[in-house]
Nucleic acid binder design. Structure first.
Lengths: 196, 196
DNA sequence: GTCTATATTGCGATAGAC
DNA sequence: GTCTATCGCAATATAGAC
């Protein structure tokens, strides 16, 4: 058997369900059935539905911590931004559920927002802001830029592309094969803009 | 009395509740109590909870139709993009619930997604893409730009700023007094980039 | 149009057998 | 550690009085 116990089967089954329907849209019976385990196992292993959800979120947001590694690298700020964009794309491709939890918690927060999601997002944005301040102090960037607005602008360009996929799938080609082109476009706009 | 009937009281009460907690996080009892009307009025006026939610969404997404007016204006593409950004900011300031419904439906879609939300979003993105193609054909923009990636990048910069507010409120000043500065920063990055 | 009362279903959680 | 059975409660919806 692939999974060693009921606990990991529950997390594996709960992740896509919570991601697709939100915390309130999923019942414990549904999760247990999808995991192929008895529903009482949720209380046994996690102590209830809310703590199962918290366990899923903790696992989902753990990869975001690795953005901190970018800050420590010995490269210029612009390359750090490209590394951030690349890491973000890779993260969403590797885990198609993360963005759902990300925006679901931002939009309809559960108690997990304050403990798990908000610290994770703040950490990433903080690093982007500091990278921008670093670039400004080394006169790499235009000195009239606001570090916070600019950091959110870069994050917005890449995150929104994935967020809009369910609505714009017929208008825009979201295939992973185009990721390199997407990253280049975003970095081009960010560095030198759209003007000729 | 401010409201003329129970119907409008229900919509007014349901809007902030659905926006904050999502469709599944709100009960009809809760809505009826907040509206100060009997809970049976929801079935009487709307035919059930789901149709009340649909009525709220229809009202919320109606303003997005006005983006089409920008396309018809006789100005250069770059000014149209700025008008789009300004209209987006104005829309979110006027109606703090719209973005919640927007991202909630993108993330955890209800049956309303296909009928109301997706057409509205596609309409806006379509206009941005066409405006970009127009600018490209008049050689206003760099000819190596992808119209769809670029349109989503601009939309992402402004929308993500508002989406992240619950997480970055302590890191970034999201006050409406800074909106002009924000718009200028986004347009600056979009047109000429961050480089010196 | 608005109310009360209730029908019906589904929910999360757990007691207790094995 | 896993099961069945069930408790207690909240959900949506509506029948029927006024």
């Amino acid at each position: 058997m692939a999974d060693n116990d009921a606990r990991s089967a529950l997390i594996a089954a709960a992740t896509p369900l919570f991601a697709a329907k939100g915390f309130n849209g999923v019942s414990v019976r549904e999760v247990a059935a999808a995991a192929g385990v008895n529903l009482s196992m949720i209380s046994y292993y996690f102590g209830g539905k809310e703590k199962l959800y918290a366990a899923v979120l903790t696992e989902q947001f753990a990869p975001l911590q690795r953005v901190a590694e970018i800050q420590l690298m010995d490269t210029d700020p612009l390359m750090k931004f490209e590394l951030y964009v690349r890491a973000t794309v890779a993260r969403y491709r590797k885990n198609p559920y993360l963005l759902r939890f990300y925006t679901s918690e931002l939009t309809n927060p559960t108690p997990c927002f304050d403990t798990i999601v908000k610290p994770a997002i703040k950490g990433v944005v903080q690093i982007l802001i500091e990278t921008l301040r670093d670039g400004l102090s080394h006169e790499k960037f235009r000195d009239d830029l606001d570090p916070t607005d600019t950091a959110l602008a870069l994050a917005g360009m890449i995150n929104f592309y994935f967020l809009l996929e369910p609505a714009t799938g017929e208008l825009v080609d979201h295939a992973p094969e185009r990721d390199e082109e997407l990253i280049r476009h975003i970095m081009d706009i960010f560095t030198t803009g759209v003007l000729r």
